[in-house]
């Protein structure tokens, strides 16, 4: 935390507290993304701030007793700071890029307001065409729109889905959230036939059939944040030793650790779905130099033998 960050925050905190009288400490700290301790520190700094001259009547007034007693903040004598300071270039760009990511995922009526908010924000920030573009592989807008509508209606849907194992299926699910992870859009849903939370990649959903049946209460899905695989109890760690030509996988898949050697790389992966690992090993083919534990490669070895048998039978 540099002092510049703090000044920047204080210049927003003063107008915020004036437009939200008796703001609650916890809620205010959350709005500014800081801890309650940091917020208290900010208030103590503000206490010494004010108009030039430093006379008692010139200073910003904060009722620190009320803060201590009821956790509510009352700030006065700062009418000259009623508007927040402009965005820093970094803030403007971070928020614009984030909003573009929202646009990539939203469909249909959810997208409403995003385009215009983006235009207003860019105007306010003075951001030009050089702000980053964002593209997410989120499947078709029609699919997203249907899913968003079913989520809102709390309705069960049937999906045409091609899983990582590449076999098609038609799961019946209660859709809950559309999320992105590592540049791909996913549907998070309660899968009825498995009685478990599942994620479905949006670009692999071929069709959504609305059933008209109410989904009922399904609860809250698990956090699908960074390291979501770590939370899967059935995920196992597999180490692959690969030829350098296969190093592209480190950019495409969640990897725990990469060790680079002269003529090979070693990567540690978490694998929740054996079918996914089988496909990956088949795809990498001769670039796979070693797999640990060795039994993790058994399914791929069998699948390759089956495929060779088809060629031999022709």
């Amino acid at each position: 935390m540099t002092s510049a960050d703090q000044v920047n925050r204080l210049l927003a905190l003063v107008p915020y507290l004036q437009s939200h009288p008796d703001a609650e400490m916890g809620a205010t700290a959350a709005v500014f993304g800081v801890t309650a301790e940091q917020l208290l520190d900010d208030l103590n700094v503000l206490w010494y701030c004010g108009l030039p001259g430093g006379m008692p009547g010139d200073l910003i007034e904060i009722d620190m007793e009320t803060v201590a007693e009821s956790g509510r903040i009352r700030l006065t004598n700062a009418e000259y700071l009623s508007r927040p300071v402009r965005f820093t270039p970094d803030e403007a760009m971070s928020l614009v890029v984030a909003l573009r990511a929202v646009r990539e995922l939203a469909g249909g009526h959810l997208a409403e307001g995003i385009e215009t908010a983006l235009a207003k924000l860019e105007r306010a920030a003075g951001a030009g065409s050089s702000t980053p573009q964002v593209a997410v592989a989120g499947g078709s807008e029609e699919i997203r729109e249907q899913l968003a509508a079913s989520i809102e209606a709390g309705e069960l849907v049937e999906l045409d889905y091609i899983g990582a194992g590449l076999a098609p299926s038609t799961p019946r699910v209660a859709p809950v959230k559309l999320i992105t992870r590592d540049g791909y859009g996913y549907l998070q849903a309660w899968a009825l036939d498995r009685s478990a939370w599942r994620t479905y990649r949006l670009d692999r959903i071929g069709a959504v059939r609305r059933t008209g049946t109410a989904a009922g209460e399904v609860g809250t899905p698990p956090q699908f944040g960074p390291g979501w695989l770590e939370q899967r109890p059935d995920a196992a760690e597999v180490t692959l030793r690969l030829a350098p030509a296969a190093s592209w996988i480190t950019e495409y898949y969640p990897i725990r650790e990469v060790r680079t050697e002269e003529a090979a790389i070693e990567v540690d992966l978490l694998v929740a779905d054996p079918a996914w690992l089988r496909s990956l090993l088949l795809r990498l083919g001769s670039d796979v130099l070693d797999v640990r534990p060795p039994e993790a490669a058994a399914a791929a070895r069998e699948a390759a033998a089956d495929a060779l048998a088809v060629y031999a039978a022709e």
């Binding site: 993304g33 803030e91 403007a92």
Partner: peptide, 14 residues
């Protein structure tokens, strides 16, 4: 994330 949150806080302040 901090940058975006502060930017939003500024909007909230207004």
């Amino acid at each position: 994330a901090e940058q975006a949150v502060t930017a939003l806080a500024k909007l909230r302040a207004s």
